[in-house]
Design a protein around this nucleic acid. Structure first.
Length: 259
DNA sequence: ATGACTTGGTTACCAAGA
């Protein structure tokens, strides 16, 4: 089974690329983030024609997550149980489903904006709620993984130049401590291999030639439990999808499982 | 290389992303 996660940065703009990539990559289960559309605008029909069912949680302009599957889609949980509000409401940042015997949780962790900003506090709270919500599945025997845009680089080597991140979000001890607590529920970081250069970055800023200069970050992660980890045959970042006009600023992370 | 990011909405500027 081939499972992937991809921050698509607008499923409406990216639909032709999405359909082409699903076909060329042979992905069975895809976790998506930053749909930037409501449920009514989600391209369910086009995906169904390509053989994929979808569990969708989107409310409009910002955020939005989905799980696409061509190997079954069951036990859908929309949202993050016990998750914090931001400015008075829950945001669409998590959706969980069971696909072909594997339980997957697609997450779009809050950005944080600036250290000390209310959004940063919200980010830490959200990660804590995620830990509590997945602890049962993480400790279980069924293959399970949290996949998505975590908006945290786990190690200094996961950004192109750590000296440029002094005081920045995504690399603080507090954020990394939350990731460590999350792994503590029984999850391991399934680190993909890069298809070029030495480090498996998954995001490159659109600005200032970030991709050609490989000024990237590894912030799209796959955290799998023991059963999931034992089934992993390969994992890689499909940087080819970051190329050319009309690309998302994130590349898909692909994991092959032998179940 | 005479260039400098992309997206959707309170649109012809703005917030947000990271």
């Amino acid at each position: 089974m081939r499972i992937a996660t991809w921050n698509i940065n607008s499923i409406s703009v990216r639909l032709p690329r999405l359909l082409a990539w699903l076909g060329s990559s042979g992905t069975d289960v895809l976790c998506l983030q930053e749909l930037k559309c409501g449920a009514e605008a989600f391209p369910a029909a086009a995906l169904r024609e390509s053989g994929y069912e979808a569990a969708v949680y989107g409310t409009g302009r910002w955020n939005g997550v989905a799980v696409l599957s061509r190997v079954g889609l069951e036990e859908v949980v929309t949202g993050l149980p016990g998750g914090p509000d931001f400015e008075g409401s829950q945001e669409p940042r998590a959706v969980t489903a069971t696909c072909g015997g594997v339980r997957v949780c697609s997450v779009y962790v809050p950005n944080g904006r600036e250290v000390g900003h209310p959004h940063f506090t919200y980010k830490l709270q959200w990660l804590r709620a995620l830990r509590e919500a997945v602890a049962g599945d993480a400790a279980g025997t069924r293959p399970f993984a949290v996949l998505g845009d975590f908006n945290v680089a786990p190690e200094d080597s996961d950004v192109w130049d750590i000296s440029l991140f002094d005081g920045a979000t995504h690399v603080t001890d507090e954020e990394r401590a939350e990731l460590a607590e999350l792994r503590g529920t029984g999850l391991s970081d399934i680190v993909p291999r890069p298809l070029k250069y030495d480090r498996p970055f998954t995001y490159w800023d659109y600005r200032q030639l970030g991709f050609p200069k490989n000024r990237g970050m590894r912030i799209d992660l796959v955290y799998g439990n023991s059963s999931f980890g034992k089934a992993v045959q390969d994992a890689y970042v499909d940087r080819e999808e970051r190329k050319g006009k009309g690309a998302s600023d994130h590349a898909p992370v692909v994991v092959d499982l032998d179940l």
